[in-house]
Design a protein around this nucleic acid. Structure first.
Lengths: 215, 215
DNA sequence: TTCGCAATCATGCAAGTGTATAATTACGAG
DNA sequence: CTCGTAATTATACACTTGCATGATTGCGAA
């Protein structure tokens, strides 16, 4: 009696890597980092646990890959809505801020993921590099937008000033994003983007509330 | 042959609890949450591992107690420097901001601790309550300071406006504190407090840079 | 001094961890 | 169709984890 039903399917390596990464992310978002064990990840991806070591040199490497995937996604989501706005620079900045402070970027799972990874930054050099890269990536985008807005308003700033402004605006957005994700019930739906727009505007010395509406 | 050297010493329960909490905190700050095992904590506190279950009903409870201890200490450090300033309300607020963005509050270990605990917030109700309490505690202090400053400047705000301002200022401080702790090398020593003072001032619509200097 | 008891310790256990290894099996090249 | 090989699985191993248990022992009360 020959068994014709295949016991498994050979998938392209990239598919498998992606599936494992997604399984890892959903697991961490739902139950925290400590729940992302080799066995749990494999089960969620519907493969045997050996697959992890076959496609990644260690579990740590899978975790790092998952972190980069997650952060890249967040960055893409925010950048996309800024790029989509073809209007004035102020409107683009406003769109960027709003996107950063609205679901799906603001999300309990996202913050949970981010926090979980943050604990690894402490003792993992590779993770530290990854975090640094992501941080500067986001901040530099923000700085470029700010530069354009100031230029547009006829108030060009020195590199030093620009740096300060970018760090400050980045901090507000990060802080709002964080608490919005953790204490999701503590804020009204449009409260966070509203506060974000006002605060970033105040820091830059201009009113962005108008810029956001004409989208 | 009678052995006169005592094999251990009986300590008041409060001493032991504190010792265990301190051991936990230093361990997490140095090597991350995952290093805070029952055995490691007991070793650092120079007691047997049984002590943990004797003085706390579970390891989780010890972790929670350590979190509250840590956050209370941070809150005390910042509040103290605001209270110490008997001058104008603006000066008190400035002192509060500066203290929040200067060592020992800004510290890699502190952030590491905070991040580690944050991952527990996700699935532990008690931890979630604790986090919420700490957050509102800090924000309410900030809101009171802001109210005083606006009052002083003759620009009283509505409760609604006050709430927005407190959330925004809290967010900048949190964001700066965070990145300052993680990317400690990325900022010059006085950069963070400088940016903090300027940004909070900008959000409130006033110049706090002068207020801070006359301390 | 003696004695009881709570504080402390030493040891063990069951469950779960990441990783290593060898046996299977799908599937394209020849 | 056959067959080599890389993908996949199944299983086992060494180790760590939090917690439980029962034996010690310091120390105040009597």
């Amino acid at each position: 009696m020959s068994d014709n039903t295949p016991k498994f399917k050979r998938e392209p390596a990239e598919h498998r890597r992606e599936a494992l990464i997604n399984a890892t992310l959903s697991l961490i978002a739902e139950k925290g980092v400590q729940a992302a064990t080799v066995r749990a990840i494999a089960a969620r991806a519907d493969v045997s646990q050996g697959m992890i070591r076959h496609h990644f040199s260690s579990k740590e490497e899978l975790i790092t890959a998952a972190y980069e995937h997650h952060m890249d996604r967040l960055t893409d989501l925010t950048s996309a809505s800024a790029d989509a706005d073809s209007g004035a620079a102020a409107a683009q900045l406003a769109a960027f801020v709003v996107a950063s402070l609205t679901p799906p970027v603001v999300d309990a799972g996202s913050v949970s993921l981010w926090a979980g990874f943050l604990t690894k930054v402490h003792d993992d050099q590779q993770m530290r590099d990854s975090h640094e890269r992501t941080y500067y990536n986001f901040r530099n985008r923000l700085e470029a937008l700010i530069a354009a807005v100031l230029e547009e308003a006829g108030q060009p700033a020195t590199p030093q000033q620009l740096r300060y402004l970018a760090i400050a605006c980045n901090a507000v957005i990060d802080g709002l994003w964080l608490e919005g994700g953790i204490l999701s019930g503590a804020f009204a739906p449009d409260e966070l983007p509203e506060i974000g727009i006002r605060s970033v505007g105040a820091i830059l010395g201009m009113d962005l509330t108008k810029a956001g509406q004409q989208t």
